[in-house]
Simulated scan of single mutants.
Amino acid sequence: MTEDPKGLLVELGAMRKRARADRHGYWLPFLLFGLITLAATPFYAPRFCVPSGQNPELVEPQPCSWNSAEMPWLYHWLHPAGQVMNSPVFSHFQPNIAADVYWIVALLCGYLAVVWWYRWRAAQVGVETPTRLYAQVTIFMLVLPLVGVPVLSELFFGRAGWQIALPITVAVIVAATWRVRSVGFTLAVLVLFALAHFLTVYQYGPLFVLAAGLAGLAHLERNVVCTVTVAIFTATVLFVNEAGRFGFYWPRGVEHFASTAVPAFVLLVGGIIGSVRREMTR
């Protein structure tokens, strides 16, 4: 190490830059969740059937019909308000428990893997990225749709009506969090609560749970590439699933691929860019 003051400042700056590079590990979570999102594609493939009594060779198959009354109890527990079926992308989608179970298991395993990854990296490089806030946000977003929203819908909203239940719920959340944390914390809890309800109504709701977790990760990383990737991912989820309402339609042969494959591509590209930048700064 040089004793020259200018040289010391240069070396200190280089050490800080190296420490920041060692701390950033978002590239692996992006790759992991990109693959998880891509693997969900088959669950959204439309099913087509031929009406009974018709010759399959003479009649064009039509989307298979379904009845929510025939769905198992787990579906009604996870979706107490039903599911919106008029989304342009999911116009031929038939709800299924397999998709729900896949997302619950995949997101839980993915979040646990991310926490382990950051703690392992801290032991290897000596620079730790705190994961407590990230774990709190992701656990909250997994538990609330599984327990909180169904229980509130069954015991409170369904009986008192949303006109009464919603203001009371908001008031309870504000009272429980206002004195414990800052105003920003209270607003964040309210947003996450609304997002958890959004998850149970829309078919692509799990992608917003993923976006919430990645937003928490971007807050911890405080990295431009990470933050921009999360923002593009969230905007892409909205665009590919709701663009049809504004006159943009995906070809029928690829519409169900677009709902998951395009957002997955964003995460994979972000992960690759982050990995390349990490190698360049080493």
Rank of each mutant, 00 (worst) to 15 (best):
Y204E: 09
A176G: 05
V191G: 13
I164A: 11
F157Y: 08
V174Q: 00
A196I: 05
L187V: 12
L207Q: 15
V189Y: 12
G213C: 09
A160F: 14
A176W: 08
E154A: 06
V170W: 12
F198Q: 09
L207I: 13
L144T: 14
L146E: 04
H219W: 15
L166S: 05
F140D: 09
V183E: 13
L199E: 12
A194R: 12
V149I: 04
Q136H: 11
T169H: 00
A194H: 12
G213N: 05
L217M: 03
A215E: 02
Q163S: 12
V209F: 01
L133S: 02
Y204A: 09
L144Q: 10
R132N: 06
S153W: 09
L220W: 14
A215F: 11
L142H: 02
A135I: 15
R179W: 05
A211I: 01
L220H: 11
T200A: 15
T129I: 07
L207T: 13
V189W: 10
H219G: 12
T200R: 09
G161F: 07
Q136I: 13
W178E: 01
S182V: 15
E154S: 00
L187T: 00
P167T: 04
I164D: 12
A175C: 07
G184D: 03
F193A: 02
F185G: 15
L192C: 11
V149F: 01
W162D: 07
G161K: 00
S182Y: 05
W178I: 09
F157N: 00
R181W: 15
I139A: 13
L166D: 08
T169D: 06
I164C: 07
S182T: 15
H219L: 07
T177Q: 01
T131Y: 07
Y134T: 02
L199N: 14
W178A: 03
I164R: 15
L207V: 07
V201H: 08
V149K: 05
L166N: 05
A211R: 06
A165E: 07
I173E: 02
V143T: 13
T169S: 03
A212D: 10
A215P: 13
L152T: 01
L195C: 14
V125D: 05
M141E: 09
A211T: 01
A196S: 15
G148E: 06
I173W: 00
V143N: 10
I139T: 06
Q203I: 12
